[in-house]
Amino acid sequence: MIRDILKNKMALSGLLIITMLILVALLAPVLAPHDPYEQLLEKALMAPCWDYPFGTDEYGRCVLSRIIFGTQTALFIGLSVTVVSAFVGVGIGLTAGFYGGRFDEFLMRIVDVFLAFPGLILALVVAGLLGPGLPNVIFALALVGWMGYARVVRGAVLAEKEKEFVETARSLGASDGYIIFLHLLPNIISPVIVMASIGIGQAILGAAALSFLGIGVQPPTAMWGLMLSYGKDYLQSAPYLTIFPGVIIMVTVLAFNFLGDGLRDVCDPRYGKVIEE
């Protein structure tokens, strides 16, 4: 399995970038050339130079250092939002798809209700009601992110549960829970993994959007999305304030997408194997 991932170029490149990002996040205090929160107004809005490779922002803080520390925030939000929403979505999708009937109908109407709201607006309202802070942002984003998982998983379960191997398991005396988690889950996990990888990127973007609107993670926390929104005022005079955070967001999201696509191929048991006698 691990060898297959390493053989897949897409997965490998995604994994390399993500590993690098994780290392950067863990070693942020060592790697950052400056204190990301130290304001030196006399050095405000400096263009990239030897001392400040990515320049400085309007308060004279080192953009590179802030990007490095922003990695921590970004990965943390991305991962926790995805884990929470995937957990809830997969759970609801599995039970709804497996038991079907009115139960399924009920759960899917709840999904419809959630899908009827524009995601960001709902997150905005929830985060606004709960007040600023990282846990509230995560809750708000997870609240608008689980429906996709529920839908996809339900659909996959509806197809899988009719297959004969489920009947085989039943004829052996397997219980519902056993069939759901040991037989169905492994068969439907691939799309979840792909969605989750893309979801991490989406969560990072969503968190940035909330911050931009003044709800959610507050300044002066080092965060890519916040840097983008503050940098936009200087788009003409200091484009590096937006270019560098923008590039890093793009690279991060791309890396997770690559990893997701690669994993999807590798997770497929038919991938890269030949029938041996």
């Binding site: 004969e164 191997f165 085989t168 398991a169 004829s171 052996l172 037989h183 492994p186 068969n187 048991p269």
Partner: peptide, 16 residues
């Protein structure tokens, strides 16, 4: 009571 299912190709879990 055991069951020997009909079609061998679909009665095994492909992911196990």
């Amino acid at each position: 009571i055991g069951l020997l299912p009909q079609s061998p190709s679909t009665s095994l879990n492909p992911a196990m």
